[in-house]
């Protein structure tokens, strides 16, 4: 029963990692960009949520209504203003520019909010739980997992059922020809980053309700998201969902053996999968 509990809790924890990963997966799928600052943007989302809840007095979940569009706008501006200039055949510019951005974000947050750990107050939601078949499940982890499934489903639907998704796939396939068809890739990339950061806002707020956070934790969130993407297989959104769950379960199982092993066992699970299945469990596009 203990072990079953660990697996179930790990699955729900994986929901948070799916939310970390979804934006990363989307951006890579559309423009082959890997954003090193992704984790810091998640933390930025958490801080924006904190500011909204403390100044306006909204519940953190209600703050989503403000933070999600705000992060979307930031994403569009960031892409058009900065990241579009780095795209091309050379790998270094996007990598180093997003790395620089990561340092700027981290220290900017440090300057604004200090290094003190912060947390968002979600009231009764934080402790509420339901009992299912002898297992006690937190309402917040359940809600997070629900968000994760909804986000993946929503992105999948956008990609394969809407004109925007068609444009994403066309630009991803062949930028020049897409441009000939009247699609401005700079605008499309901006929209993709806006969507990715909108998802990141959800991730940041749920992170900030669940645990305390400070400006330095972005790198770790990037790594979790990245591991979920690779485990699931590049370019496969449902694979990313599976990857996040596997990572979460590996962590809770590791923690069960020894609390100090929680994060480490997640990394080891990732490395083992990388050794056995280099393209992830459900690959769609080659890395």
């Amino acid at each position: 029963m203990d072990w079953l509990n660990a697996i179930v809790q790990g699955t729900l924890l994986g929901g948070l990692y799916v939310l970390f990963a979804a934006g990363l997966s989307l951006i890579f799928g559309v423009m082959r960009l890997v954003n090193i600052a992704h984790g810091d943007l998640i933390v930025l989302g958490a801080y924006l949520g904190l500011t909204v809840t403390t100044t306006v007095g909204l519940h953190p979940l209600a703050a989503l209504v403000i933070v999600v569009p705000a992060m979307g706008l930031i994403g569009y501006a960031l892409q058009r203003g900065l990241l579009n200039q780095t795209l091309g055949d050379d790998l270094l510019p996007p990598l180093l520019v997003t790395f620089g951005l990561s340092v700027i974000l981290q220290n900017g947050l440090l300057e604004l909010y200090t290094a003190d750990p912060q947390k968002m107050d979600a009231g009764a939601l934080e402790t509420a739980s339901v009992t299912v078949g002898g297992l006690t499940l937190g309402v917040l982890p359940l809600l997070t997992f629900g968000f994760a499934v909804a986000v993946i489903w929503g992105l999948q639907w956008t990609f394969y059922r809407t004109g925007l998704g068609r444009a994403f796939r066309a630009v991803s396939d062949n930028q020049d020809i897409a441009q000939l068809m009247g699609l401005n890739r700079r605008h499309i990339f901006g929209l993709a980053m806006a969507l990715a950061l909108a998802v990141t806002a959800i991730a940041g707020i749920l992170l900030g309700i669940r645990t305390s956070f400070d400006p330095s934790i972005g790198g770790g969130r990037l790594i979790f998201g990245f591991e979920a993407v690779i485990i699931g297989g590049l370019g496969n959104l449902w694979g990313t969902l599976a990857g996040g769950v596997i990572l979460g379960v590996a962590q809770t199982l590791g923690a069960k053996i020894d609390p100090g092993w929680q994060i480490l066992s997640g990394h080891l699970a990732f490395l083992i999968i990388l050794a056995i299945r280099p393209n992830g469990l459900f690959p769609r596009i080659a890395a």
């Binding site: 796939r169 396939d173 009247g182 699609l183």
Partner: peptide, 16 residues
Amino acid sequence: FPSLSVKENLMIGAQV
């Protein structure tokens, strides 16, 4: 566009 169906390829043309 390889990841688009025949119909979707045609519809991309109507994007303008």
